[in-house]
Structures are given as structure tokens and as C-alpha cells.
């Protein structure tokens, strides 16, 4: 494929896919190690009610109110789940199940009740996004990367997602040591003065920010998949946290690139005309990588090797 086709049609979705995958996989490592993997699941389900409420309040489908609505819903969900766990003495899994299904149901109901026929706002979009539509119309080929005028027409999702990735990476780099100690041995972390409660909350909020920034581009499924699959596969490749994060980033990039390529061109190779969902394919590929790591990874078993 020539640059004239690749750059306008495929480069941007692929880059966005990579940014989403890595931005979710990095905090996902800590969530998986802390046995909070399903927080990602809960967050991605409450994004829908968040954007519906934002839409009802502003009356328009615009980016920033929706991102704030989604982020607000994620924070509300996390706080309410924690409150139900502590105050109701309910195990976290069940508390999550109660809260995110109820919030999701409220979102669907609000959507049905309000008149959204005139705008593009639907459940399917929130679930699987539309990575393929993020094309760069102003580009004519590789040379456009150096063309200021063409760059101005870049889909806004790309810089936004890149900034999110930078933010997530900076958070993890800055709080690397406290995160590591408190995940490994919370009691010890407290005795050296780490405030494990606020730190854990901050981690979940950072994960929520990554999820919210990502859902707009890719929908919430690949968000959940990227939170869990690359870190889980990476855990089976190494016994060092530093290496685990690197592995997870590599797996995330491979899933994004290969998933997008397969979705866009796979059907063509099979002689079919249309493409299939890139978000779904990226999630599927991350699952295949996890399956391979679970079968052949050098450190796949507990205790051994």
C-alpha cells in the first residue's frame, strides 16, 4: 500500500489505537496486581450514563462536556463502590456488580427517555467506538507529516490521546516507588508513611482518565481488554515489575497494530468487500496474545520458575 493511501486512511487510526492501548495497559499492570482488574470493567460501563447526563445538561454532542461527564461518572462509580464495600460490608466484586449495572441501566433509560433522534448518540457507539472513521483527510502522503497546513487538519483525537498517554506515563514514573511498595506490601508502605488510600484512589482516577479519553475513539470494549490482557500476558513473561510494564506496552502496541490491520484488510484478503470492527479485532488479538502467554509464557505458573 502506498503512502498516499496509508497516511490519510490508516496512519491516524493506528496511532490512536497504539496510544489508547498503551495508556490503558500501563495503569492496568497495577490494577491487575492489586486484584482490581474489574475496576476497568466498572469504569467503562458507567461511561455511557456519564455522556448521557452531559448531553442532557448541555443539549449537544460536544467533546469536552462529554469527557467531563464520563470522567465524573467514573469518579462517582468508584466512590460509591468503595462506600458500599466499606459501609455495607459487601465484597468488592458484588459491590461493583450492583453499582455499574445500576448506573448503566440508568444511562440506557435516560437515553430512551430523552429525544436523541437528531444527534448521533447511541449505545453501540459507546461500546465499540469507531476507530475507522478517524481519518486524516488533509493528508496526501508521507510528506504531509511535514506540512503545517495538513497537520492542522489532523483529527483532534490523536493529540488528545497522545497527551493522555504522556500524562498516564508521567504519573506512573513519578509515583513508581510508592505504587510498587504499596501494591507489594501495603502494611509496610504505611509504616514508611505512604498514604496508601489516596494513592490507590489516584491510580483508579488515572485509569479512569485513560478510559474516558479512549472510549470516544475506540469504545469501551477495547478499554477493558487493554486494561487487563496485555498486563496479564506480561506477568507470565517475567518476574520483574519493570520488565512486566515493558512487556505489557509491547503487547499493547502489537495488539493495536495487528488488530487494526487485520480488521481493515483481513476481509479483503479473504475476498470480502467490507472491513470489520477494528476495536473488536484489537480486543480479540490481545486475547490471543494472552492465550499464547498463558500456554507458553516462562513464568505462567504460580511459584514455579
Amino acid at each position: 500500500m502506498s503512502g498516499a493511501e496509508f497516511v490519510p486512511l490508516s496512519l491516524v487510526p493506528m496511532l490512536i489505537g497504539i496510544c489508547v492501548a498503551v495508556a490503558c495497559a500501563l495503569p492496568g499492570n497495577f490494577l491487575v496486581l492489586r486484584k482490581q482488574a474489574l475496576i476497568g470493567d466498572a469504569i467503562s460501563h458507567v461511561i455511557l450514563p456519564g455522556i448521557v447526563v452531559a448531553f442532557l445538561l448541555t443539549g449537544a454532542v460536544t467533546t469536552w462536556p462529554m469527557l467531563f461527564g464520563a470522567a465524573g461518572a467514573a469518579v462517582v462509580a468508584v466512590v460509591v463502590i468503595e462506600a458500599v464495600v466499606r459501609l455495607g460490608r459487601i465484597e468488592p466484586g458484588a459491590a461493583m456488580g450492583v453499582i455499574f449495572t445500576a448506573m448503566f441501566a440508568a444511562g440506557v433509560l435516560l437515553l430512551e427517555q430523552s429525544d436523541t433522534s437528531s444527534v448521533h448518540l447511541d449505545v453501540e457507539h459507546a461500546l465499540y467506538g469507531n476507530l475507522e472513521s478517524l481519518i486524516w483527510l488533509d493528508a496526501v502522503g508521507w510528506s504531509s507529516l511535514f506540512d503545517r497546513q495538513a497537520l492542522a487538519g489532523l483529527p483532534v483525537e490523536l493529540p488528545r490521546m497522545a497527551a493522555t498517554l504522556l500524562f498516564v506515563a508521567a504519573f506512573i514514573a513519578l509515583f513508581w516507588r510508592p505504587l510498587k511498595i504499596s501494591t507489594f506490601d501495603e502494611g509496610f508502605a504505611r509504616t514508611v508513611g505512604i498514604r496508601t488510600g489516596p494513592l490507590g484512589f489516584a491510580l483508579v482516577i488515572v485509569a479512569a482518565i485513560a478510559a474516558v479519553a479512549a472510549f470516544d475513539a475506540v469504545g469501551s470494549i477495547i478499554v477493558i481488554a487493554m486494561f487487563i490482557c496485555p498486563p496479564a500476558a506480561a506477568r507470565m513473561m517475567t518476574n520483574r515489575l519493570e520488565h512486566q510494564l515493558l512487556w505489557s506496552a509491547v503487547f499493547a502496541v502489537v495488539s493495536a497494530v495487528a488488530g487494526y490491520t487485520l480488521a481493515a484488510f483481513g476481509p479483503l484478503w479473504l475476498g470480502l468487500s467490507a472491513s470489520v470492527s477494528a476495536a473488536g479485532m484489537i480486543a480479540t488479538l490481545s486475547g490471543i496474545i494472552l492465550a499464547l502467554a498463558a500456554m507458553f509464557g516462562p513464568h505462567r505458573r504460580r511459584g514455579a520458575g
Binding site: D41, L272, G280, I282, A283, R301
Partner: peptide, 29 residues
């Protein structure tokens, strides 16, 4: 494997659902 049950649940639900969405788009064609 050394994966805890919560991670296993999350991995299975997202991957199966992702595959389902791929198949939904196949059905659309």
C-alpha cells in the same frame, strides 16, 4: 496460570465481547 480470578474474568469478558463485535460487523455485511 498465576492469573487471579478477577483478571481472568475481565480478560474473558472483554475478549469474547470484542470477538462478538467483530462478528456483528461481519453480519452487517
Amino acid at each position: 496460570t498465576r492469573l487471579a480470578e478477577d483478571a481472568a474474568i475481565g480478560a474473558v469478558l472483554s475478549v469474547f465481547f470484542g470477538l462478538g463485535v467483530v462478528l456483528l460487523t461481519v453480519i452487517q455485511t
